[in-house]
Amino acid sequence: MRELKIFAIVAFFSLLTYYLVEPYAHHAMHMKVDKDGNEIKIESHGFTYDGTDDIAEAKRKGDDALVAKKEAFWSDVVVVSSMTGDTVAGEAVFANCLGCHSGANINMGGVVPPNLDHAGAIYDKNYLIALIKDPAMASNVDHKYADTSMHPMGSIKFTVTDNQQIADVVAYILEKKVGEVTAKEVFTEACVRCHAVRYAKMTQIGETPKFKHRKDALAHEIKVIEEQDRIKAYMGNLPPDLSMMIRARSSHFLETFVENPQSGLPGTSMPRVGLNQEGYEKVKEYLTEAGDPSKKAREELGPWVIGFFVIFTILAFLWKKSMWRDLH
């Protein structure tokens, strides 16, 4: 039938244009290539960490010494990972951590040390091991430091030196620092020391309370600005507010970026956070609540509206048919 043929032609050219300007153009736009022009595939590793990305990055830089260093580091991590940790001994080692990770919200060396109350539930085991071995290497920001012990947490290298100690403390964290955790808690523990979310009234120093007097509100705001200045000094610039991030970036970007910030923004000073799959899901949930709270309503209403128009179209077709029946 002629109309269907015309429709097929219109649909073909529309879809072709769509394909070219959307999937194809965006792929070409965001494609990263190495020196030899080969495409660098950026893929998620399911929020597990074994240094694959880090070593590949070092190889692309052509720095053999760095490659060797990273390979040695991550193979060491695997060794510790296979050791059996003792939680009782681990608790004693953990006492070392509490000096900084006290949950007191005090900036130390440029940033507030994160609260570790749910660290065992939200961070990956290998990542925790790597972090205690060498924080800058684990979070893939070693390029920022001539000597990785200059990292704010770098001194851990001298406090917890023994592989067994690391295995013990990680075993302790994985067993004791767990439990039910809300999306907001995960986000606060993992992201808030650097990122604000103004749509959720979240700043770098936590959720903003309600103030009755303008003076108190301004005093609080100054405290926030001061903390932001410290982070700015530490990170180079102020990490972005994440209110709309869930809509501003694709889910693929967010996943691979959180897993390894260097994959999306080479050279960024943002450290790898080391979230596991569950931790990431919670962060995503929190960001969705802040930046796309109507997602659920939208997805629920969709089928009804589309269903309405399907029936509308059927009725309109029957009406049209009855109208045009005796015309030819």
Binding site: E299, V305, I306, T313, A316, F317, W319, M323, W324
Partner: peptide
């Protein structure tokens, strides 16, 4: 009557895109 039928088809696509 023909216009409205075509509009119906169009609106299915339109709201699919919207949601």
């Amino acid at each position: 009557s023909k216009d409205i039928f075509v509009m119906g088809v169009y609106f299915i696509l339109f709201f699919y895109l919207v949601f």
